[in-house]
Design a protein around this nucleic acid. Sequence first.
DNA 1: TCCGGTTGTCTAGACAATTAGACAAGCGAG
DNA 2: CTCGCTTGTCTAATTGTCTAGACAACCGGA
Lengths: 261, 261
Amino acid sequence: MLFYIAKRDRIMTPARLWSLGGMDAVGDGVTRWRRVADGIRAAIGDGTVADRLPPEAELAERFGVNRHTVRRAIAALAADGLVRAERGRGTFVSGGAPRLAYEIGPRTRFSENLLAQARRPGGRMLRAAIVPADAETAALLDCAPGTDLHRVESIREADGVPLSVATAWYPAARFPGLVAALVETGSVTEALRREGLADYRRRETRVTAERLSAADAEHLSSSADGLVLVARAVNVDLSGRPVQALVTRFHADRTELVFRS
Amino acid sequence: MLFYIAKRDRIMTPARLWSLGGMDAVGDGVTRWRRVADGIRAAIGDGTVADRLPPEAELAERFGVNRHTVRRAIAALAADGLVRAERGRGTFVSGGAPRLAYEIGPRTRFSENLLAQARRPGGRMLRAAIVPADAETAALLDCAPGTDLHRVESIREADGVPLSVATAWYPAARFPGLVAALVETGSVTEALRREGLADYRRRETRVTAERLSAADAEHLSSSADGLVLVARAVNVDLSGRPVQALVTRFHADRTELVFRS
DNA sequence: TCCGGTTGTCTAGACAATTAGACAAGCGAG
DNA sequence: CTCGCTTGTCTAATTGTCTAGACAACCGGA
């Protein structure tokens, strides 16, 4: 099936909820051209559309919108470099970069992960501070709430393209010079080693999906409002003691998380 | 930090790019009230807002929008049952159900997974057909493209609430009576056992995020346009031979995928 | 009872999104 | 070249979104 054929009544803003105590609420907050763009993007993503898009008139009919709306959707995709329209010929998929397969396992190391795929790892630290542990983080790190933690926020890149923004918490008492070591080495593994931690491994990873916030969008240099894969992880030392709580927000258009059993 | 304080210029739809060779592309296709709603949702999600929301006037200022826009956002959240506005008192978070932690490992079994969390598993088959393997699926199942496959689409529920839509492919020659067995038993594990497969395990899982398509939204009975976590997996028999390719689309608001190492 | 704070409702205007129809411009095949 | 098909451009009208301001209704405490 080529593209989902939206029924007009469905994609249209339904006028329900009117009698519900006076609320304006009508549409779903996403414009039609955006929906169409997402639909086309998905069709390209899963290979339903390989090379050439159906003509605008046909797309308009399939999605149940006006041709101008389709054009706007295509313009957005073209601005992202995903398709390329040629007058008189058609609109063509210009093979976008495939998603980076970020493998997560017991020994997840950012740099190694990227180098294994011939991508150049990079990144920079955004902020570092010492903060008291909130209840949730304390539970993850198996410490008392209020304990001093390093909170380190950073950006990670592949071939210079922002891939994720990560926030990490470390027990400050155990790793006093951590931030300096992170700045100096640029590597979590190496910085922890300097602080006396020979090795660590990942205990668990919890994955959810969210919309890209405006703040993250800036960091990830994402034009369209995209999605993020949120990976919440805990890394432990060899005795099983937590050494790092990690929340990584991966750019969903550029990343795929891989778990092997 | 309570809520992201969007600068007016940022959240506003910028009117640049008009003269850029005739592309309509301007805004991001997401309305402001939707952004505000997502912002509040996120703040509720990560615990920044526990019980009561700041007053509408304050929210309006923080997000840099008019109070009416905030009201519309809140109306949308209220329609989803996430908050509850009380005239004269304030707007309160009405504790939504926590995400179901769906654990994925070598032995991922839907029913066991849910029962382990005291949730009642359910579901139904949507469609079943025999289709020729496309290149991608053939690669996953380690068979020749064009090979006959069972393609089974189904919905899975927790306590009667739709959790995911899944599409599975099985080699038809190896499991001739599979669909009948699935219909009869309602269990993949049991159906495969009847077809002579004693046990299977998961080889790998690849996770991405997408927007909920209109078709999926209907199946997952989601009012707002939500997100899905897409898990692409391969299950193999004990000799390592693929027996099932699986694409599961989890409702992102209701699910969290858990991987232990 | 009064008063400050909060949500609910209404009007009006500016601007963006969408539809509709028409036509120009370019491509490729017969 | 001519014809059919496709993308590019334009105008006009309609509908949706957002802002602005004002006021009503309601709650809780002083």
